[in-house]
């Protein structure tokens, strides 16, 4: 799976169950935290996932909700971190 697909898969696998869930869909540029389908631990889960799945540690300076709020931004972060490692 590509980075984008992996991240999308992780996000949808962690949406909380709700009555409206059948209608849940989101675009890669959308702010997932404003959709209301994640709980308070999701941001931590996401950080842990990005670090473990892609094999790097996110610097404190990059632990910024903006870097995690959309699939597009997370892909940018992963590519940036990978670039920094090579």
């Amino acid at each position: 799976m590509e980075v984008r697909e992996k991240i999308r898969h992780f996000i949808t696998a962690n949406f909380i169950i709700s009555n409206e869930e059948a209608d849940v869909s989101f675009e890669d540029h959308e702010n997932i935290f404003s959709l209301g389908f994640v709980n308070s631990m999701f941001a931590m889960k996401l950080l842990n996932y990005i670090e473990s799945e892609f094999g790097f540690r996110v610097d404190n300076d990059d632990i910024n909700i903006n870097n995690f709020k959309s699939v597009d931004n997370m892909v940018l972060l992963v590519n940036k971190m990978r670039g920094a490692l090579t």
Partner: peptide
Amino acid sequence: KEGFGFTYIVN
């Protein structure tokens, strides 16, 4: 960072 106390540090 300021504003990240709950999301990251508390969790």
